[in-house]
């Protein structure tokens, strides 16, 4: 546990030693503002809630989170520092968790910095704050799942660009499979059971339940398991490829 804390501290401060965290948080805040007010018509809807803000998060994360995750392992392998890291008395799991938690904490910080929106809707009306809290939690969990995918892809290759592209593609699939577009196309071709199974893998459908204010164990578990599975896959990859 101590070791994870030490690694977390290093990774977290490394996000702020380079412009990565500032750029990420800046772009996240600007884009979420643009989406909320410009495309989401927060004011024009006349409703005191943050649905227009949260509804765009899957699409925001689709590009921003892979950009943040791409360096986690690729850079270690490219610079050779992985040899240092892996010969210290640290288990690969500790290294993976330290890296993941640090990046996840930056995502939490970015989300937390959108608090003026929350204040705004509370000032303008009487929103259901329980729903907003559930939405923040859902958004953070979903961001974690995107991050775990990104880190797995980063473990796969030395090139940050390839890691970025691969994770955008994989994340895109997980966003897209729950949309009506895909489900309608599959309808009639595959049995209903498979259709349900496909739909239930989608990040968006689980996120939507949380945004509606329902914190169900099923949706929370879905994201937790998704994070665990992708991190485990990344762990297998990094142990196999660390010396390439």
């Amino acid at each position: 546990m101590d070791m994870i804390k030490i690694l977390f501290k290093r990774e977290f401060s490394s996000f702020f030693a380079t412009p990565v965290a500032y750029v990420f948080i800046g772009i996240f805040l600007v884009l979420s503002g643009v989406f909320t007010f410009y495309f989401g018509n927060l004011y024009e809807r006349g409703q005191a809630d943050l649905a227009p803000f949260f509804n765009f998060h899957p699409w925001l994360y689709l590009f921003l989170v892979p950009a943040m995750a791409m360096r986690t392992w690729s850079e270690e392998r490219k610079s050779g520092s992985i040899e240092l890291l892996m010969t210290l008395p640290i288990t690969p799991l500790q290294a993976m968790l330290g890296k993941f938690l640090a990046a996840w904490a930056v995502l939490a910080l970015a989300l937390a910095l959108t608090f003026p929106l929350w204040i705004t809707v509370n000032y303008l009306g009487a929103p259901d704050n329980g729903v907003i809290i559930a939405s923040y939690l859902g958004s953070w969990l979903m961001a974690g799942a995107f991050l775990a995918i990104g880190m797995c892809m980063s473990a796969m290759t030395k090139s940050q660009v390839i890691a970025f592209i691969l994770s955008v593609v994989v994340c895109f699939i997980f966003v897209l499979i729950g949309t009506p577009m895909v489900l309608n196309a599959l309808k009639g071709i595959v049995p209903a059971v498979i259709l349900d199974a496909v739909a239930s893998l989608s990040f968006v459908s689980h996120f939507q339940t949380l945004v509606k204010g329902v914190i169900s164990l099923q949706d929370v578990l879905y994201f937790v398991i998704a994070i665990a599975v992708w991190l485990q896959a990344g762990l297998v990859l990094i142990q196999q490829k660390k010396a390439d």
Binding site: S14, G80, L84, T87, P89
Partner: peptide, 20 residues
């Protein structure tokens, strides 16, 4: 882990975390 605790290692090219 027990073995690694007793070893000090300078890898080839002396890699380190460049941003630190």
């Amino acid at each position: 882990l027990d073995a690694k605790k007793t070893i000090g290692y300078l890898p080839e090219g002396a890699p380190a975390y460049g941003d630190m």
